Amino acid sequence: MMKKQIDTALKLRRWVTIGHHIPGRVRLKYKLGVLAHLAAFNRTDIEQALQDFPAFKQYKINNATGSLLIEYDANIVQPSLIDALFAESDQDAEQACYALAACLER
């Protein structure tokens, strides 16, 4: 099951860049093309999935600026994994995604 979510995250990451990142808080800038991909997902299901992970404190979508602000517990999720997830290297991003999944499953 987790493999499917990881594959989806890796596909969606090409539509997203880090606007700024400090440990515990990351602003992701997204391109409008991602909205077409996200339309297939039920927002309630996404929100419920995020609530299931204690590492996620809160998030806020700002459609006016095309950004998503995520606050997370930097004691659970290593900030370097967030940076690696959005690295240019697909291999680095895939490794980071699996490492993030392992952190979140604890």
Rank of each mutant, 00 (worst) to 15 (best):
H21S: 09
I22V: 14
I22T: 14
P23T: 12
P23F: 04
G24Q: 08
G24V: 01
R25K: 14
R25L: 15
R27P: 01
R27N: 04
R27E: 13
R27M: 09
L28K: 00
K29W: 03
Y30F: 15
Y30W: 12
Y30V: 03
L32P: 05
G33L: 08
G33A: 11
L35F: 08
A36C: 06
H37D: 10
L38A: 15
A39P: 02
A39F: 13
A39R: 15
F41P: 06
N42P: 01
R43V: 12
T44Q: 11
T44C: 01
D45K: 15
D45C: 09
I46N: 03
E47N: 08
A49E: 11
L50Q: 07
L50M: 13
L50S: 03
Q51D: 06
Q51H: 03
D52G: 10
F53P: 00
P54Q: 09
P54L: 07
P54Y: 05
A55Y: 08
A55S: 12
A55C: 10
A55F: 11
F56P: 01
F56W: 10
K57V: 14
K57Y: 07
Q58D: 13
Q58F: 13
K60E: 15
I61N: 11
I61A: 12
I61D: 04
I61M: 12
N63L: 14
N63T: 13
N63Q: 08
G66A: 12
G66V: 10
G66P: 11
S67G: 13
S67R: 02
L68P: 01
L68T: 03
L69A: 07
L69T: 06
I70E: 04
E71I: 08
Y72P: 08
Y72E: 08
D73Q: 09
D73L: 05
D73A: 11
A74R: 05
N75T: 14
N75G: 15
N75K: 15
N75C: 11
N75Y: 09
I76Q: 12
V77R: 00
V77S: 01
V77D: 02
Q78A: 11
P79W: 04
P79C: 07
S80N: 04
S80D: 10
S80P: 00
S80T: 07
I82L: 10
D83I: 04
A84E: 03
L85H: 07
F86S: 06
F86E: 00
F86A: 02
A87V: 03
E88H: 09
S89R: 01
Q91Y: 07
Q91S: 10
D92M: 02
D92Q: 12
A93Y: 01
A93T: 02
E94F: 01
Q95L: 05
Q95F: 05
A96Y: 01
A96W: 01
A96P: 04
C97M: 10
Y98A: 06
A99L: 10
A99F: 03
A99W: 02
L100C: 00
A101M: 11
A101F: 06
A101T: 07
